[in-house]
Design a protein around this nucleic acid. Structure first.
Lengths: 219, 219
DNA sequence: GCAATAGCAGTAATATAATATCGATATAGT
DNA sequence: ACTATATCGATATTATATTACTGCTATTGC
């Protein structure tokens, strides 16, 4: 009954954090030791109160009226909240074009994510390396996850195989899944699935575009 | 005053569409000529009524009680709504690791997106080709967009340059921007920005993981 | 040095949007 | 004809974002 929610941050608040981080770092690099919520809100196109609430939810030190928040303290608080300080290892399944793309992308390390190894069913791919990361057969998945204590799985296989891969990851001890396959994954309770559905993004883009171009014709 | 909203679909409804599409195609390929909303809802872990409403918002033909909706008709309706039938050309700015990754990814064509050309400021990159796509200097951006009638821009540059690139895209006639840079972009009215912020996704993943692992220690 | 003022933080209340629930109607199969 | 199941419209609930308000702190003017 002791609900014990020390800091329950909503998902959308969490997703705003990286934007705050970027803005705060830029401000700090520009020499701003102190920054106010309205300033950040204006930069990001958000509501002042929302920004304040988000800041309050991660930082234990309060802001001071008329001045604002300590920039460096806020940055540290957000980084701590997001776990950017301690690196998380991950495995990637699916060494196709998208998988190779992510393996060669070096930007994740800045956010505390390190891809330890890749896996694939295709014997032509396994055994070699892609961007310095080993590509292993699926049979090694479980042992690698357990031995290296890995809890994050990245799925970059076609939709038809995604659910099977997901099940394999779950039984290998994976707790959080980053799903690039354009489909819904069924998982047991307690497993988080973060969908990175490019098709969904493209849907929004494409729809907006067609509406804009249609209205342009009317003009 | 004539609001002229023939079919205003909410953004999250739009983002569910690709999931419906995947499920419906799978059902069709399995031989199901007719499919009901509850069936799809169960597969995707959604509410029945929500699925029904989403179907109704794109399809003009009503579903029939006791049976459901015509699978093929629904698929066509969603594809039409998302504009997957007519291909949209796009330009990509930023031929770094992420940009190259997207250029080499062949999955977009299935969703009606075709990257016509890439651009970069680095003279070492421009002039060549990546995955069969020309890499051009930024000076050519505007003319290419206008000549080829391109209205979608993909930003894969570091955050520090993203706003400048965004401005350049807007003044080149771009109406919709797919932003992979981990920062907020300020745009004029009428320009759609779809953020594909991997950092935001990682934030959710990382937070969930740390909470799970902490609770595991308590067990 | 002191009072007045302007700007910002913090909390509460309202508004909005999305989602889930409920009731009524219609249809296919038995 | 009856029953089970699905669509459809209307309502209720929830989560989230916006607005309004109060109080505090630093700057400005006297």
């Amino acid at each position: 009954m002791d609900k014990n929610t020390p800091d329950s941050i909503s998902r959308q608040a969490l997703q705003r954090m990286p934007y705050y981080l970027q803005a705060l770092r830029a401000a700090r690099d520009a020499g701003a030791e102190i920054i106010s919520a309205p300033t950040v809100a204006a930069q990001l196109g958000l509501n002042e109160v929302q920004v304040r609430k988000d800041f309050a939810s991660v930082s234990d030190t309060a802001g001071k009226p008329k001045t604002g928040f300590q920039t460096s303290e806020l940055i540290a608080a957000i980084e701590r909240t997001l776990g950017y300080d301690n690196t998380n290892d991950a495995v990637l399944v699916g060494a196709g074009s998208l998988g190779r793309a992510l393996l060669s992308y070096r930007g994740f390390e800045a956010y505390g994510l390190s891809i330890a190894a890749a896996f694939d069913v295709d014997p032509n791919l396994t055994g070699g390396e892609i961007s310095g990361k080993q590509v292993l057969p699926m049979s090694k998945l479980s042992s690698v996850c357990h031995n290296m204590n890995i809890h994050i799985g990245i799925i970059t296989v076609p939709a038809s195989q995604a659910q099977a891969v997901c099940d394999a990851l779950v039984s290998s001890g994976i707790l959080a899944i980053w799903n690039f396959a354009p489909m819904h994954l069924n998982t047991p309770e307690g497993i988080l699935v973060q969908n990175e559905n490019m098709a969904a993004s493209l849907a929004v883009l494409s729809k907006h575009l067609s509406e804009r171009l249609d209205s342009k014709l009317v003009d």
